[in-house]
Structure formats: C-alpha cells, structure tokens
Nucleic acid binder design. Structure first.
Lengths: 189, 189
DNA sequence: TTATTCATGTAATTTGTTACATGATTCT
DNA sequence: AGAATCATGTAACAAATTACATGAATAA
C-alpha cells in the first residue's frame, strides 16, 4: 500500500479536530494552508471517498440545521496513518517562482525594463502579504497555539522576499539598471 | 493560441544564449533553476518538438565530436515570444512545504516529538543549503551577472528558513516543547 | 571490458485544476 | 424575488514525472 500524499494527509489532519464535511474541510484549508497547499472540491471529494474505501475515515449523512451534509470521521486506522505521517521526515520544500527564473535571463531586458519589473514585483509581493494578513486566524480549538504558526511563517517569508527584491532594486538603481560583475571573493588570493 | 508555460519559456530562455540540444538544456536547468523549476527529459523533448511545430525554434542534426545530436535554435518568432513573456507580470510564487503544513497539526505530537521534528528539519535545511552552495556558478556568458542571482536568492532563502525554524526551536525548548498561547496584541485594549 | 556519460525519445501514470451540473436554504 | 451561501459530485483537461527502451562513444 503506497503512502498518502500531502494533501491526503492534510485532509486527515483536518478531521483530527473532529468530524467535518468536505465543504468544511475546504474552508479550513482556505483559512490556513491554501496559499501553499490548496485543494479544490475536485480533489477533496474523491480523496474522502478513497479514504473511506481504505478504512481511514467513516461517514454518515446528517441533517444539520435542516441542511443535508455528509460528515466524515476519522477511524483509529486513519489516526494511526496520520500520526505516522506526522513523524516521517518531511518532503523537501518545492518552490515555483517565475520571477526568480526570469532573473536568469535579465540580461535580455533593457536596464529600465529590469527596474520596472522588479518594482512591479515588489508591489505584487506587498499586495499578497496584505491578503495573507487578512486571513482570519483559524481557531478550531482554543489554546492550540500551533494553528497560527503557519500564517506567521507566511508573513515572515513575504517580508524576506520584499526585503530581498528591494535590495536588488537598490543595486540596480545605483548602476542605472545594469549590475556590475561581482568580484569573486575568496577562492584565490 | 494559448500562452507558453513557465517551463516552456525557460527552455526558450536557455536557447536565447545560443543553439543547444535537449541534453544540454537539461544541464543548464540542473545548474540553475532545477531546485525550483525542474524539467525532466520527458518534458524537455516533447516541448522542443512542440516549439518547433509552432515555429518558435528550428532544429538541425549535427555531428559534434563524432557524436550525433539535434541542435535547437531560436527563431525570431521564438525570441519575440520569449521577450514578451519576460515583460509580463509574473505568476505568483507557489510553495509546497510539508513541514510548514505539519505545524498546523503540531498539537497532535508529544512535546519531545515536536522538538525532534524541528531539529531534524533544520538539519535537512542545512544539508540542502550546502548542496545549493556546491552548484557551480553557471556562466554561459562572461559578464552576465544575472545568472548568479538565482543561486544567491536560494542561499538567502534557506538562511531565512534555518533562522526561522531555529527561533521556533528556541521557543519550544524554553517551554519544554509546548508553546504557550500568545496574547493577541492590539485588537482590543 | 565495463562503467559512465552522452544522447533521444515514448508510454503509462500521477496529480491536480477547471468547468460543468445540480439543487437546497438563507439572507436581503 | 433574487442573490449568496451551503453542499456534493463528475468529466474533461493539463502538466509533469517515472519508468521504459535504445544505443553510441569515451574513460577507467
């Protein structure tokens, strides 16, 4: 039996707080990990079904405030699988960052285009950081101080990016949009 | 006609330095963007074929040192497409970071398990940063100071991550592996 | 002679999104 | 009455990886 994927484990993790419906799981993800591990309904519902087939979760139809929903609940087997995943050494981070790739080819742009691209990008980063800050802290359980951590991390990451690109912008502006060759330090005396 | 993807444009970008074979393009990517935008042969060869069908590149078979290879060369149309992409506002960064996700569910681990997970992760980050540092600066053209930028960025990013998790580790150790609830500052007096 | 590097490509599979399809309930 | 939210699900499509398949040239 192959291992569960990260998203499959996130869904189990959401259920570790108590029974939830697919719709509710989507909401939890939106309020926490969505900006770096997202899942659409097109993923969530099939995964829940698969989890049930494997015996990791069980489900029942309930009427909640006159509204039909299918509530999923973790089984012992599901909790064990989730907990085992938590203890595994995590996959390395993967990043897809188009702006960083473009830097490779920056020599192909005119100096003023370089400056403009970086300026626009910094603005983009600022906007995104604002959006992050507006995500309401997800509090499934009082006293669980770990749920905020992920949002804090995101904000710190974007601070880092804004700072890095601002510094690059400064350098570019100092030399009219054309970085000088950096001398290699060390290596040979 | 739909836009080219990022990887399709990276391949065009590699050809902007001169004619290259699929094998050589893979090498360039390995030495620069691989750790955040990778491409396997299973992507590269079909993309080159597609680019040729679209007229963005042309190819010829050559014998180089007694070795057969198919060299691809950018056409004017290809350069225009590449340059237009360079000027577009870049896609937002996406991050897949399993360790960050696990933080959401850290309450489910025992205090000593939390500390151990963070310690192991910091070690993992250090190792990866070392690998990054060992990538030989890719210098397709003398005097192109932008090609190094992407590696510098990576090293700075990993410094940030190591620092962030070290700080978290400190906090955890201070409280025997169990973070206290942070008081919400501001909001209400 | 044998392992490594150079070199190209296809097929199957995985993983996920987007768009579609449907419909009930609640808020304005 | 109509818009928004709650709620579930499928089908088509997209992007990319992994494994497979092949073979020549070179270095040890």
């Amino acid at each position: 039996m192959s291992n569960n994927t990260t998203v499959e484990n996130i869904i189990l993790g959401c259920l570790s707080f108590g029974p939830r419906s697919g719709y509710e799981i989507k909401k939890i993800i939106n309020m926490s990990s969505s900006w770096f591990y997202n899942a659409s309904y097109g993923s969530i519902y099939p995964i829940l079904k698969k989890h049930e087939e494997k015996g990791l979760v069980s489900s029942e139809e309930v009427i909640d405030n006159g509204r039909y929903k299918r509530l999923y609940q973790m089984t012992d087997k599901g909790y064990k699988a989730f907990h085992a995943w938590m203890l595994q050494s995590p996959k390395l981070m993967t990043v897809k960052y188009e702006m960083a790739v473009k830097l490779m080819f920056f020599a192909k742009l005119a100096p003023e285009q370089r400056i403009q691209q970086i300026e626009e990008h910094i603005e983009q980063l600022r906007l995104f950081k604002q959006e992050l800050e507006e995500i309401e802290p997800w509090a499934e359980h009082e006293g669980d101080s770990y749920q905020r951590l992920i949002l804090d991390w995101g904000e710190n990451l974007y601070d880092f990016l804004i700072q890095w690109f601002s510094q690059l912008l400064n350098e570019l502006q100092k030399y009219d949009g054309d970085l000088p060759q950096k001398p290699k330090d060390g290596q040979q005396l």
